[in-house]
Nucleic acid binder design. Sequence first.
DNA 1: AAATAACATATGTTTTTTCGTATGTGTTTT
DNA 2: AAAACACATACGAAAAAACATATGTTATTT
Lengths: 118, 118
Amino acid sequence: MNNSTAVQFFKNLADDTRLKIILLIQMERELCVCELTVALGLSQPKISRHIAQLKLHKLLSERKVGRWVFYRLVDVIPQWQKEVIELSNVNNQEYIAQCVVNLMGMGNRPTRQEKCCE
Amino acid sequence: MNNSTAVQFFKNLADDTRLKIILLIQMERELCVCELTVALGLSQPKISRHIAQLKLHKLLSERKVGRWVFYRLVDVIPQWQKEVIELSNVNNQEYIAQCVVNLMGMGNRPTRQEKCCE
DNA sequence: AAATAACATATGTTTTTTCGTATGTGTTTT
DNA sequence: AAAACACATACGAAAAAACATATGTTATTT
């Protein structure tokens, strides 16, 4: 049930929602749930469910700030897995282009937070 | 339905049988179905079904020789995907170790072919 | 303290994958 | 030509994954 196997690692990436979450977080270093719902245009429970899975498999760590929860990639994941994520990001910019547009539309923090799930 | 998207690529790798098939073929350059059934210790229809999926998504190509069909990685897959496979192989040798033992137990071709699915 | 915002999770359902088994196709052997 | 071999595929069942919706939790605001 952990991320120690290669197969489980690829399963984590083998879903549209999860892959976009990972690529966006790697790009922005840190994102909260409400930012991801806006970026992906998906419901909050759907985002939360996939995040829970990525957290379970030790790919994401959380940092709570008030009522927000920020997620980032954990830094102890195997080096080769980091490289796979990096490769995916560099070579699939158009895949998350619309998400980035949506995210930028929120402005920067703390402006972005004001627009969070309004 | 092709392999043009990153998600579909990762789905191809997100299964124990398919990942082992890909890693073994990359390691041996070329393998036939009966060699894979011995290496993985799985039924022939199961191997064939997964190979059909990998072929459908343009990851494997076939070469027919008599009653054998040899598969290899197609050479036109995106460079970053090749690198992902290469990284997976280098960093997961223990994952396919038993499969390699089973394969080596068949000897070399054509000795290996004589033992094929006897 | 009531209301609200951000997020997590539980539940039942639908969809997608995977599977075993049986059968079909083409090739080589006898 | 019949039998054996290597492989592909069809079919229904079983398992796994993803889903929408509702509700729970915690922190902030008023």
